[in-house]
Design a protein around this nucleic acid. Structure first.
Lengths: 269, 269
DNA sequence: TATACCACGC
DNA sequence: GCGTGGTATA
């Protein structure tokens, strides 16, 4: 059987809220090492990868590897019924076709249980190659979300350029053009506001803002987000879930220009 | 003539907001003992009963019994024009066809008056028989509202089962099944969180969540709500209005099962 | 199903 | 006054 008890139940709610607009149905894979999900989005453009390690749960038992297919919309409805401070326990029998979510209020005066029907979903387990990224920029998740949202009102795509000094987000469209530059500041300030850049070589890639905005639904999960990029390879947008794992998104860049080195020209594209 | 002065004017606003989605037009009945309203909802399924005793008003005068038919939508619009701390005075002449609402700001620096046209409404004064309920459960109004709202995303109906230990709310639908159990705790805690159960015999009844959710609009009127149930009889959902009276709703149970004694089997229904 | 507006709580 | 959550509409 599978049984996992998560004290910080709202974390699960945040994860599902972040993914459900991208992926309608997905397999959750359980093993003794933890709880993972990997899926292409509905339009098969981007890839979502969730990993929650078993040691992040208060209690975790998985006798046998199992893959549980769920409707993320229905799962979200159920998780919405949990109180914000509730403890969530998931249970599934090895041979069952349902999974049960139990919510306990902190004061133990209310207990709810919800049973969700499992679905058969073709799992296309795409391996994600270990990539040697040219640049990884880390910035406050809320600030990044704001940037993506703001640029959406200017254009459909954004050019993200990382240099040793900072990261520049550029868009253009009918309205005009926009450039938002965030400087590296590992120094003083509050930890919350730190921006760091790990750069092997400068890189500039173009992405569809529509997907970046969907990914940014994960903002409540983490204080910071990191963007890892390499020329002509998908960006990895990484939200670390403290003490438990991560929620990552992958999106291939638009290839508009054979010369990826100097992206200044793309502002007009 | 009729004249009634209510220091806590926003109470009237809350009452009308709670009822206006259920009943479009209704007669307010005034007598020397107070101010009441009784009406079937628009679809003639549930019944609303409001009672505000004359002693709850700062001043109350009613020379002659009268029935004032009002559009609750229009009444709500007028009451929305009152400040939250305003003192409200209602006035009507015995032979008039209007009622006047006067709002006085606490500092007496602003006075408004609004005149509402009265309507002729067929009053079908249904007597409500005194019922010997098998069970009455009392729980925090906000918690009850949350339960009804949450279960609405699972199914259309709820089975409410009262036992000596607690009350269980169960729903099922396409998404799956849900059970929310609230335990009795008359003991410690804050008064706000008390749940009490007055039980003669266990009872379990099925209701349409749509109506329970409409009734729950009365939540701002009271800290607690009580549900009084007896087999095959309408539930009484009671919001006490402190020192003045009550707003009550009645809804007949769905009869899905001739055997009302053991409702466990209804979980599958 | 996703977006926009409105109301309530912090 | 700002932010979040819920409701209603397209």
């Amino acid at each position: 059987m599978f049984e996992a008890r998560l004290v910080q139940g709202n974390l699960l709610k945040k994860v599902v809220d972040a993914v459900k607009d991208l992926v309608t149905d997905a397999n959750f894979d359980c093993s003794s090492s933890g709880f993972t999900l990997q899926a292409m989005d509905n339009s098969h453009v981007s890839l979502v990868s969730l990993s929650l390690r078993s040691d992040g749960f208060e209690h975790f038992r998985c006798d046998r590897n199992m893959s549980m297919g769920m409707s993320l919309g229905n799962l979200a409805k159920i998780l919405k019924c949990a109180g914000n401070d509730d403890i969530v326990t998931m249970k599934a029998a090895d041979d069952g076709d349902t999974v049960t979510f139990m919510f306990e209020s902190p004061k133990e005066d209310r207990v709810s249980d919800f049973e969700l029907k499992l679905m058969d979903i073709d799992s296309e387990h795409l391996g994600i190659p270990d990539t040697d990224y040219a640049a990884t920029v880390t910035l406050p998740a809320a600030e990044y979300q704001r940037i993506c949202r703001d640029l959406s009102s200017i254009g459909d795509t954004v050019v993200i350029s990382a240099t040793k000094d900072g990261v520049k987000f550029s868009s253009s469209g009918d309205v005009g053009t926009a450039n938002i530059t965030v400087r590296q500041n590992t120094t003083a300030d509050k930890k919350e506001e730190q921006v760091s850049i790990d750069l092997k070589e400068p890189v500039a890639l173009t992405f569809a803002l529509r997907y970046l905005n969907s990914f940014a639904k994960a903002t409540p999960l983490a204080s910071h987000v990191s963007l890892s990029m390499a020329r002509d390879l998908p960006v990895m947008v990484d939200y670390q879930i403290s003490d438990m794992g991560h929620l990552r998104f992958y999106l291939a860049p638009k290839i508009e220009d054979e010369d990826g080195g100097d992206m200044e020209g793309q502002d007009e594209a």
